[in-house]
Amino acid sequence: MRALFLRDLVLALRAGGGFGLGLAFFLIVVVLVPFSVGPSSELLGRIAPGVLWLGALLACLLSLDRLLAVDWEDGALDLLATSPLPLEGVIAVKAAAHWVTTGLPLVLAAPVLGVLLNLAPQGYGVLVLSLALGTPALSMIGAFGAALTVGIKRGGLLMSLLVLPLYVPTLIFGAEAARRAAEGQDPATPLLFLAGITAGVLACMPFAAGAVLRVNLR
């Protein structure tokens, strides 16, 4: 398990597709927002939490279709399936590596981009906290979507169609917490819901994804 995790990290580093691309995409989305809604700092400050959450979600989605597809194409997934590792564990580890290579950098970069969007000062802490709580769920749900579509050629678009509706609860609670904090309200309730969803997803989703992957491998 540890070896797989480290291998995925090293691959993401060396192939350059992991850390860099998602982050750059996040940056571009955030930069494009003022161009589309206008430079009014009051308006930007109001929509900043939502934009940052949406940007993080899309950046996360961007790299998902390679999560399993690469290992599928070069046969590594078959070999992993015959190895002593349970497929559920393989999926969970790959989702964890995906989070470290895309989710975590997004969490760390979000405050910087918050400055660009004129986010209210009291909102930064909760924004980072909500992203840190929510993005692991995004990676795990995404791994489920990737497992569903792994055998399908050009499955990327289909995967987005399947995964995005599953992201709704996480997005709602995450963005709501960040928005409340930015407006000086108490963000505790949505944060708790968000943490609950993430915990549930992390506990249950590996099994669904493992089952799906087993069906796809046979």
Partner: peptide, 22 residues
């Protein structure tokens, strides 16, 4: 695959229902 998606989707549909209510 669709059966499992239906199962997972149901859970998330219910979650979404509560989320949008909130």
């Amino acid at each position: 695959l669709t059966s499992i998606l239906c199962l997972v989707g149901t859970v998330f549909a219910v979650l979404s229902r509560y989320a949008v209510n909130f």
